[in-house]
Design a protein around this nucleic acid. Structure first.
Lengths: 192, 192, 192, 192
DNA sequence: AATGAATGAGGGTTCATTCAT
DNA sequence: AATGAATGAACCCTCATTCAT
């Protein structure tokens, strides 16, 4: 029954990922995680300082990766066409979205990652706004918020629908992003 | 003895609506509701069997209304144009979306309404599928799921963003639905 | 078995007094108090917000009383004789010392009453210093600290030794204070 | 394997002394001691059966020494003068008071040394009683207890105030003991 | 109809100690 | 001799719910 340290840590993180995915940070139960993993209460605290440290282990690197990705993305030059932007999003941004990312965005209430979703949506919104400004079209603020959040949710939904199979996931994404940009085009043309 | 039975029940339901909207079922606090309403613990359980019964009172009729609405909608004849469908959705479906509906969809975890969101999305999906079939276009299953859920989320987001002001809400809705159908059109044209 | 609210609160406070007296705040066990009193965990929190609130109930009024007493005492005019001061201390200051006061001074670590002992010792020291200055005698600082703390401990010891019987307690106090002032006189005469 | 057995034991005892001095037995943390000393948990239990055994190692010899000292002191002949007794106490008894002695007296709650303070005070009391009997003066029992405990506390306070500097410590002690005997003289003269 | 005292399972966390290696 | 992973009782506290009045 002797398991090596790394295996237990990994098992804890794996089970915790499920738990946090299901319940979010606040309603996740440490004791439930431990029962599932077969680790005793006391031993858990040999591996993680507390519940939040475990959460950070599950979600932290994902958070940092996303932040740097967004920043970098902002400074990236597009060749102007939708296809270019589209393929860029698909190939560079999306692959990093994972179940842990879903947790980060949807389950961080009561955590120092609390604001993650808001920050993300803000970035997406500004990103979106730039595109609209390029087109010389003005869109009301609420609609921008709505679409930015919608786009975000869509990405998360893709991850939820196809967490593993990359090929199917990318195909789904391609369609989704195409749909999204078609919608945007429609709006732009109408407002002109 | 000052307030008659019905008034107390109503007051409880009204306060509960706020609480469930803010926290969802699981994190809603019965005590907080009672304190706000000025009803004693013991008396609460004269009106409702338990927390979930209260939740059902807040959300149940909304749920049943939506179900029947969806079914009915299914049998409705459109005049074929997008504008027709669009205005139909806006004028007939949307006004029924309310704060309680948001609660039902987003706050039902740990409840027998757990699956409400799933069932709703399924209905929306079949609805969507019919439209696509009419257009002679075939779309992969996952994409249908995605778009149905997205549309649903969008509607909820609108309700959240503008819960009271009907005029602004309808304008936002119009834009959103237009965006959505533009996206669909894009997809259909590409697949053809 | 139905006990009225006030009786339970009193019983809790009484048992808590014992517990805090024995173990101090930090090492006192809420569960032990509850088991002894026959009150359930949940019900305890109907009476007190938390462990510290219970502690405050036991010790708070004693603390406030002592503070005001010390302040008032500082502004009091003596007729100069030791006997006068002595009887003043005995009749006015001491009767307020109680077992709860002992708890306050000796068991407050980890509480907002943390500094009670220090503040008391400081007051006693300044008090003492004034008497010495009146006698034109200078005493080294460490000795002042020592004697002030000693006097304080002595008072607490009297309370511990005779918590209830006022007559015996006062007799003990008279002797103790006499002893104390004799010691002071000895020091003063020697330093002159 | 780098440090020999005795060195480890000594290091543990040294660190434990600090810890017990700071926190007392009950609130001392074995883990904190081990971290400071750089000894592993498991190895600690090769050297000491448990926390209390470590405590005994820190405090036990001090306890036994004090007991024998007190006994021996009892059979010692004084030359009668206060000065003689005074210098005797200072030169023979006090130097043996150490930090470990403070620990023993003040930090033993929850230990088999629990009663150490009580036993010590009893010895001091009997000692005191003999002196009083020699003077033909009878003092009430409670007062004897009080003064014995007070004297003890005073000695501990001196050790705490000046744990290292022997010169200052002795000067403080001289003053303190003089104060104490002056007080005793005062009592004796009054009772006569 | 109404009150609120009482219950107890469950929440996260600490800590001395044991045991396999 | 040495390691540190593992254990579990105990800590304070929250909360929906029951029950006597």
């Amino acid at each position: 029954m002797q398991i090596k340290k790394q295996e237990i840590e990994d098992a804890l993180i794996r089970t915790a990922e499920e738990e946090f995915y299901k319940y979010g940070f606040r309603n996740a139960s440490v004791r439930r995680i431990l029962t599932k993993t077969g680790v005793s209460i006391g031993n858990f605290y040999n591996y993680f300082q507390n519940k939040e440290a475990l959460y950070e282990k599950v979600v932290g690197s994902e958070y940092r990766r996303f932040l740097s990705m967004m920043t970098e993305h902002e400074h990236h030059e597009y060749n102007g066409s939708y296809e270019g932007r589209l393929s860029d999003v698909i190939s560079r941004v999306i692959p990093d979205f994972s179940r842990r990312f879903v947790i980060l965005i949807e389950g961080s209430e009561g955590t120092r990652f609390d604001e993650a979703r808001e920050r993300m949506a803000r970035l997406a919104k500004e990103h979106l706004k730039n595109h609209m400004d390029d087109s010389g079209v003005c869109i009301q603020n609420e609609l921008l918020d709505l679409l930015a959040n919608q786009f975000l949710d869509g990405l998360l939904a893709v991850v939820k629908a196809e967490p593993e199979n990359t090929a199917r996931r990318n195909r789904l994404l391609a369609d989704y992003v195409f749909f999204y940009f078609s919608g945007m085009m429609g709006l732009i043309n109408e407002k002109k």
